[in-house]
Amino acid sequence: MWFMKKKSSGDVAKNRLKLVLSSDKAGCSPEIMEQMKNEIIEVISKYIDVDTEGLEFKFRNASDGSNSLLANIPIKEAKGRRRY
């Protein structure tokens, strides 16, 4: 990409909604979600280089009624390993 595309308001709406809905379901506020996200990143990035831009956190309702937290963390490159 040569230029940064400005995020459209439709996408903003979609992302906000996703966050709101997942915190609605989990019963915790967006602030706490954000904090948790940052702490998890902090821990993981001690060991691996993560792509913070492409991070995705969400709650999922499984068909059996149980909820799970899904974290999709793209890895840039494992730390300490060199490519030759």
Binding site: S8, S9, G10, A13, L17, L21
Partner: peptide
């Protein structure tokens, strides 16, 4: 508005 990106599309809503 969907075209210009200023409204969520039906598939956005469906996905959510």
């Amino acid at each position: 508005l969907v075209k210009s990106g200023d409204m969520m599309s039906s598939s956005d809503v469906e996905e959510i």
